[in-house]
Amino acid sequence: MTEPVATSNGQRMNGAAGHPSLKAETRGLSFFYGEKAALREVNLPVHERRATALIGPSGCGKSTLLRCFNRMHDLYPDHRYAGEIRLYPDDINLLAPETDPIEARLRIGMVFQKPNPFPKSVFENIAYGLRLRGLRDKTEIAERVERALHDAALWDEVKDRLEDSAYALSGGQQQRLCIARALATEPELLLFDEPTSALDPLATASIEALIGRLKSQVTALIVTHNLQQATRVAEFAAFMYLGELLEFGPTEALFNAPSQKRTEDYLAGRFG
């Protein structure tokens, strides 16, 4: 039992030539806080090994949508989902009652707005996710920690301070540590919730470059406030407004020729 994590990197072709296969999709997804609908009938495809950006004005529901994928809402009272989120290739509904939210979180990684390393050493921060998955073998854990740090472009900066507290790192380093923490678990889908909004421009650039490089291994779903960031890192973009998905398409097409008036206004900075 060296790798209890269900990882699937198999391509699933679905006809349309040149288009990658689907990693996940939401079908008629609605979400309610108490009586208030925060998401309405969202149908969003997430393409495998591509980055999809969720954009839209604040309060449009993009973070709410992101947090449906790993069932983070289940941690708080008074929530209700309707519709489905299907995860491929094994085609399970993440929102089904028989799907444990913990299963969703073990298979899907998340990086938060503000870096949130644990009060542990750099090494233990990354090893923690592996231990949660039942890994006990010390050398394997060490290997996977190192690989994750390489993948997150952090290894060279921290290789001599693996036992130092994670809080000794800079903000940008902490965020890359959080990315490494998620990468180490080999997530089938990686959620980013405005991963650079708390960082300075240099750190932002390095995180963006990192996400760009990661796309050969992971499928990413990125909430961002920063439209340039969406064009820089994402192949696909989804524009959300008042809890609805108004427009979805390849990023370039969506930015250059939005089909909806609202998308055009938002991209032109007429509201935000």
């Binding site: 983070m72 941690l75 913990i102 979180r105 503000k114």
Partner: peptide
């Protein structure tokens, strides 16, 4: 303890 730490752990699949 800030909620963000708990969320970080839950998001990794912790009970």
């Amino acid at each position: 303890v800030p909620m963000s730490l708990r969320e970080g752990a839950y998001a990794l699949g912790a009970t």
